[in-house]
Design a binder for these strands. Structure first.
Lengths: 308, 308
DNA sequence: TGTTCTTATGCTCATGTAGAGCATGAACCA
DNA sequence: TGGTTCATGCTCTACATGAGCATAAGAACA
């Protein structure tokens, strides 16, 4: 980073690079998290053209053209510019990735564009079914990788890393660590992208699966302190359906009564007055999201020992 | 965002843009948060050159050259590419901003580079002194802006936004909302960058003050669930000094006993055995950070009604 | 027409954590 | 030597969170 004189700040000579957008567009349909793909193995991406006002504007325009649904919550994920990201002429590419939430469209606008079950690519992230846990298989292979480390120190580090990421050795599973898990599997050489084959799950082109893991981690984190789930729901829904959507994304089951308590005491929803019996069992009341609270709930709870 | 056929994903033709890095480098010295500036009115920035492996590598190299201190925690903030970000030839500029934590260097490597009190630019963010609160002055001007809205709906929105951002109308001040506060002041036309003059604080070139606010908000958020403060501390420190650093960044006072309880029960530090009486009053024990917990404490506490 | 299954919904309980305050210890300063 | 300033130990209370019991209200089935 060469430093120009202060007065000249905007005029430093710079090499030109190509800029592209990579989008992780997520929906939830019938408790299945879905992601928009190109040909089932790539995330939609494209050059960032100067006709757009901003990065977000470019993303929104494209997605809304594709899905015919407004794009709800949009969040910038990460910008990559590693050396191996190069266009044909060996030119640097800066890739700016975004996470977008929407509702699944029946018809998609362009050939090759399709919705896929997100867990098709990261199956170990889905722990909703306690019996079908993939942890044991992975744990074994990861353990082997840890033990294969050249020295004791590195072995200790690997073991500890695995235990934290995958919730082993009496630790709790933390759904937010999706990226750490993917990175650990990569480093352990268990995914096809890194030459392995032990880890289940469909690979994607380049580092798209990594970006997907980043998106999932970020989404799971956001879910906890901002009411973004509602961007994925139809206008009216039951609390059961809402919980289903959260569980789909979090990849774990939640305690039903406590979930309801949380939603209701925060006054996130209001009754429509109608009920539906489509869910089976006792008919459920229908709710709608109270858009008013959106601005408000941007606040998170403090964790510092507060005030004085 | 034009879509290429899937097989051709990396080869879409794209306009070329200039890429620059903007760095917010933060330190804390004697309970004063400090930020590295160029000429006191700009954040250090520079073109991203292809000699670097990655964005982070470029940033680290530059900062370490400047401050002769290793750069501790580094975090990507945000990437901008708005239409008004253009180089001389009307060419688009993609600006990638980073937050970096380090310790203040006595000597800086280059002319024009200097450390400044961060609150010089965002004075309303410092609420450590309960008497010197700037809220009243700002509140009045903001209220006027709200009432000047053309219709009732917009007035309501503005009032609510102000109340949330600045902790008015029986709401608590939330230190994490630094960015929302700056943006509100901007929209209300109270900062020089937006043509106003009511709001105190030194302006910066372009949108650098906005980026600084982004960094502060992010840092305050990170502080709560990851032990990043230690990147700003000398090897040995008292709990009082540690608390001083946190308070400097959070811009508020903390309850001393509770702060200590939190630090100790998380086993973040260990005693060195030595004490110091430099703090005045009863001599304080010296502590050092337990680096081992770094990896571990990357985990945050869940807020979903957990498991089942 | 019960019986059983399923989901919805209401309530209570135990535990842990965060905010707050009281009290004491140990140096320095006038 | 008493006042000041920090450091440090301990207790109390309110509230959030994880968990479980019990009941309601439809559908499927014998």
């Amino acid at each position: 980073m060469a430093l120009p004189p202060p007065a000249d700040l905007r005029r430093h000579p710079s090499e030109r690079v190509a800029a592209e957008l990579i989008a992780v567009i997520v929906a939830v349909t019938d408790s299945v998290p879905r992601v928009l793909t190109l040909g089932g193995a790539a995330l939609p991406s494209g050059p960032f053209a100067s006709e757009h006002r901003s990065l977000q504007a470019a993303l929104r325009a494209w997605v809304e053209h594709q899905t015919h649904h407004p794009l709800g919550h949009v969040e910038q994920l990460y910008t990559f510019a590693d050396r191996d990201r190069a266009a044909e002429a060996g030119e640097r590419v800066v890739s700016i990735s975004y996470l977008g939430l929407t509702r699944e469209a029946r018809a998609v606008g362009q050939a090759g564009v399709s919705w896929q079950d997100l867990y098709r690519y990261l199956p170990w992230e889905d722990r909703r079914d306690p019996d079908a846990t993939l942890a044991p298989v992975l744990a074994q292979a990861l353990q082997a990788w840890a033990e294969a480390a050249p020295d004791a120190m590195l072995r200790w580090e690997r073991r500890s890393r695995i235990a934290i990421a995958f919730g082993l050795e009496r630790r709790a599973w933390n759904e937010d660590l999706a990226l750490q898990r993917y990175e650990t599997l990569w480093e352990a050489g268990l995914v096809p992208e890194a030459g392995g084959s032990t880890a289940p799950g469909e690979p994607m082109v380049h580092d798209h699966r990594r970006i997907l893991a980043t998106a999932l981690a970020r989404l799971r984190g956001t879910l906890k302190y901002r009411p973004v789930v509602f961007e994925l729901m139809p206008p009216n829904f039951t609390l059961g359906q809402l919980q289903g959507a959260v569980e789909a994304l979090a990849g774990r089951r939640l305690h039903k009564q406590n979930f309801r308590r949380l939603i209701e005491q925060q006054e996130l929803v209001e009754e429509t007055g109608a009920v539906t019996s489509e869910t089976g069992g006792r008919p459920a009341r229908l709710f709608r999201f109270r858009r008013e609270v959106m601005a408000e709930r941007a606040v998170s709870g403090s964790k510092l020992p507060l005030a004085r």
